[in-house]
């Protein structure tokens, strides 16, 4: 085995899109191959899990870890890879802030499982639910236990860097790969621990090319119910766009394609609670001083908490694992 630095990438409760995004750096993947020994990457090669267990602590130089902590298995692998990795990157929205699967934190596990096993096509006369341990006539078989809330990676292990996005944009991944390779060759310096990498320091609005004026609205709209002006800021047109609180880095991809930013790059630099920041931003565009009218305008925002915490519920002040455990 060569003495090149070692690279690993792993998915916990993830959709696989983060892996696809890495594959989408296309030829750049050869740079990764040239600079690193890829020791563990289930999507691209046979996963030698036992080999990872056998490694020295810190033997993996760079580990990109994506996916949230949905069950005890996810947590176990996260702990193992943390131990074996020098640089652990929380990769993608799921690992960083819970992402869409984190919306599960609006509900209890029971509500979640009950729903899945009582849908209209579910044939379940005995009203069964999955059992983590089940005695078949031939013996006991087991499946992992779901966590009561979906956790972010840093709620389970210590993380060195955060790389936001659902998934992170491929040009950003390529830039991070270049940076790490340069740093390994002593040609660049890595940012301080805890930094967000592969993204900008401002907001999606800052990158957005739509025209902006003073934002004031008399009604929130729904994107399907109007023909939006392709040049004008969407929020100004009443379309709930999360650009004002979302971290830059994607080149305002969605607003450029006519769709609102749904917030996949997570909270902008310095934002403590993403949703709280959006409350301030959305409240400030409402053009009214009258309580009744304000509430009428707010009625047009049919799901404010879902809107403001679409990607960030598991990382929020009020619905993360920490708050949920207070019981």
């Amino acid at each position: 085995m060569s003495n090149k630095p070692k690279f690993a990438m792993y998915w916990a409760a993830s959709c696989g899109g983060c892996e696809i995004a890495v594959l989408n750096i296309h030829e750049k993947i050869l740079d990764v191959d040239a600079a690193f020994d890829v020791v563990f990457w289930p999507v691209a090669m046979d996963a030698k899990y036992k080999d990872v267990e056998a490694m020295q602590d810190g033997e993996i130089t760079l580990c990109l870890f994506n996916g949230g902590m949905r069950n005890d298995e996810n947590e176990h692998v996260a702990r193992l890879l943390r131990k074996k990795s020098k640089i652990m990157v929380s990769f993608g929205s799921c690992a960083c802030e819970g992402c869409i699967p984190g919306l599960a934190n609006f509900s209890s596990i029971k509500e979640m499982v009950d729903t899945a096993f009582t849908t209209i096509t579910t044939d379940n006369p005995d009203n069964l639910r999955p059992q983590t341990s089940y005695a078949m006539p031939e013996g006991i078989i087991t499946i992992p236990t779901l966590n009561t809330v979906l956790k972010t990676l840093d709620q389970v292990v210590d993380v060195d860097y955060y790389m936001p996005g659902c998934p992170p944009e491929s040009h950003q991944i390529a830039a991070v790969v270049d940076l790490v390779i340069a740093a390994l060759n002593g040609k660049a310096e890595l940012p301080p621990k805890g930094a967000t990498i592969g993204a900008g320091n401002s907001t999606v609005c800052d990158e957005c090319t739509r025209k902006r004026h003073e934002k004031t609205i008399k009604a929130f709209g729904r994107i399907q119910l109007t023909h939006t002006d392709p040049e004008l800021c969407l929020l100004e047109q009443g379309i709930p766009c999360n650009g004002p609180a979302t971290r830059s880095g994607c080149n305002a991809r969605c607003p450029s394609a006519g769709a609102q930013c749904i917030g996949c790059y997570g909270p902008a630099e310095g934002v403590v609670d993403y949703g709280a920041r959006l409350i301030a931003a959305f409240a400030s565009v409402i053009d009214s001083d009258k309580p009744d009218e304000i509430n009428q305008i707010l009625d047009g925002l049919v799901d404010p908490a879902g809107q403001f915490y679409r990607f960030n519920l598991a990382g929020s002040l009020l619905r993360s694992s920490k708050s949920a455990q207070k019981g």
Binding site: G16, N71, F106, S107, T115, T119, I223
Partner: peptide, 26 residues
């Protein structure tokens, strides 16, 4: 594993479904 999309999509504006359910599988 179970991630619960059938549960947590409830309460969301329906036009978001093409965006939310994307994340079932990348």
């Amino acid at each position: 594993e179970l991630r619960g999309f059938e549960r947590f999509c409830v309460g969301r504006p329906v036009e978001e479904m093409p965006l939310l359910t994307n994340r079932i599988c990348g």
